[in-house]
Each structure stands twice: as structure tokens, then as C-alpha cells.
């Protein structure tokens, strides 16, 4: 049976992992390779590296990070952040990333989804959607640029469009839930999961193991991503997986 996936997300800036690094007892906790191997050892099913570098130098460093990770890590990983061109996509995939995640650039240039999917197959192209509930219209709006910029796109419609353009997976982050640690946004996750035929990764709001159970059952997500609760060791990938197994969820 296909397992539900648990995906830790690591923020990388100028080639180093930031956020939470001081809480994990590693020789060099800022080293992406060491952290990747740490989560791999915990039973992570995949990893996401989010490049939050502000400079071009930092971006270029990401290709070296990807190479170093791919040399050691024997599970799939996705790279997102600052990918604007087919050349960026090619460089990261050739360096050993399994998938790239497109967010703002996909909204600004939807053709990039298609170009990437045509070249490497749709399984490599993840469309990341940052969504926030809009009480006025009772709908979920898409935001870009790290949540700074509101667009007029409806999250569900954009997810459908992204898939029709060639996205092989949707990474849905709820801006309302992100950082709240009160659980994933189940309503929107379920709606998008039902609206598209590709896997959906729930993101934003994980606080405890049972939140993951809800994401998979009520939210109908195929995978769930979390950052801070794993980095700050509030729970571990292994603990979450043990809990889910006890609840009868298919888990590796």
C-alpha cells in the first residue's frame, strides 16, 4: 500500500541551514548534508530544501548544496525558492534534486511549469501554493513572494490550472495556520486534494502527531510537511510515524 509521506522542510540561506539548528545536537548543525542525514535516520520519507537566500551568490551556492546532499542521501528531495527559469530548474535537477518547487515564478510565468514538465516530466515539478482565507469572498486567495503579495487567484482554481499545465504535485501552505501549531488547514487541503488528480502535500500548522493524522484523514493529503516542530524537537519524525502506524495509517 502506498504510504503517507512525512516531509521535514529545511530553510537554506547562502548554503547553510538556518532556523532551529541550535536545537539539534549535531557536530555542525548548519550543514545541509548533516541535517539531511539526521532526518533520513529519523525515517523522513522525503526532504524539502527551501532556498531563502536573498543574493545571487546564495542561489548559486544552492547547486553545490544539492550536489553534496545527493551524494549522501538515498531518499528523494525537493528544492524550492528563487527558481525563475528553465535553466534554474535544469541546474538543480542535474545536480541531483528529484523535484523543484515553483511558487511565485509559477504565478508570474505559468509557462515555466509546462517548460519544466516537458523537459523532465511532470513528476519533477511541484507547484507550491501559499493560500490565505479571505473572509470577504469566503474563498482562499493565493499569495506570492513569501506571502507578501496578494494575487487575485483562487487557490483551488490555481491548483487545478497548475496541474493542467503540468505540475505533478501540489505543496499547499496555509498562511492562516503557518506557525500556529494548531493543526493543518484541513478544509482547503481536502478541497484541493479532491479537485486535482496529483498528490497534495499539506503544509503549515503542524504542532503534534495527531495533526498529521488529521491531515491524512480529514484533509485527504498524500503527504505532510513540517519544519519547526521537527527542528525544535517538539516531536520527531519517528514519533509522528509511530503514532500514525498505531492509528492504522499506511506509513513506511
Amino acid at each position: 500500500m502506498l504510504a503517507k509521506r512525512i516531509i521535514p522542510c529545511l530553510d537554506v540561506k547562502d548554503g547553510r541551514v538556518v532556523k532551529g539548528k541550535q536545537f539539534i545536537q549535531l557536530r555542525d548543525a548548519g550543514d545541509p548534508v548533516e541535517l539531511a542525514m539526521y532526518y533520513n535516520g529519523q525515517g523522513a520519507d522525503e526532504l524539502v530544501f527551501l532556498d531563502i537566500s536573498a543574493s545571487n551568490e546564495g542561489r548559486n551556492t544552492m547547486v553545490d548544496v544539492v550536489k553534496a546532499v545527493a551524494a549522501k542521501l538515498a531518499i528523494p528531495f525537493t528544492v524550492g525558492g528563487g527558481i525563475h527559469s528553465l535553466e534554474n530548474i535544469k541546474a538543480l535537477l542535474r545536480a541531483g534534486a528529484d523535484k523543484v518547487s515553483l511558487n511565485s515564478s509559477a504565478v508570474e510565468n505559468p509557462g515555466l511549469i509546462t517548460a519544466g514538465a516537458d523537459f523532465f516530466g511532470c513528476q519533477c515539478i511541484v507547484c507550491a501554493i501559499d493560500a490565505k482565507f479571505d473572509p470577504e469572498t469566503s474563498s482562499y486567495r493565493v499569495y506570492t513572494h513569501g506571502g507578501q503579495k496578494q494575487t487575485d487567484l483562487d487557490a483551488i482554481e490555481w491548483a487545478k490550472k497548475a496541474v493542467s499545465l503540468g505540475a505533478g504535485e501540489i505543496l499547499l501552505t496555509s498562511m492562516d495556520q503557518d506557525g500556529e501549531k494548531s493543526g493543518f488547514e484541513l478544509n482547503l487541503t481536502r478541497k484541493i486534494s479532491e479537485a486535482v488528480d496529483v498528490p497534495v502535500i499539506a503544509s503549515g500548522g503542524a504542532g503534534k502527531a495527531s495533526d498529521f493524522f488529521d491531515a491524512f484523514s480529514a484533509g485527504k493529503a498524500d503527504a505532510a510537511l513540517a519544519a519547526s516542530i521537527f527542528h525544535y524537537k517538539e516531536t520527531s519524525v519517528a514519533q509522528v510515524k509511530t503514532y500514525l502506524k498505531q492509528k492504522g495509517v499506511a506509513i513506511r
Partner: peptide, 9 residues
């Protein structure tokens, strides 16, 4: 869902 994506037994 298609693709069949993830860990399967």
C-alpha cells in the same frame, strides 16, 4: 491520484 508517487510496499 496519478502519478503513483511515494513509498509503496
Amino acid at each position: 491520484k496519478v502519478p503513483h508517487m511515494g513509498w509503496n510496499t
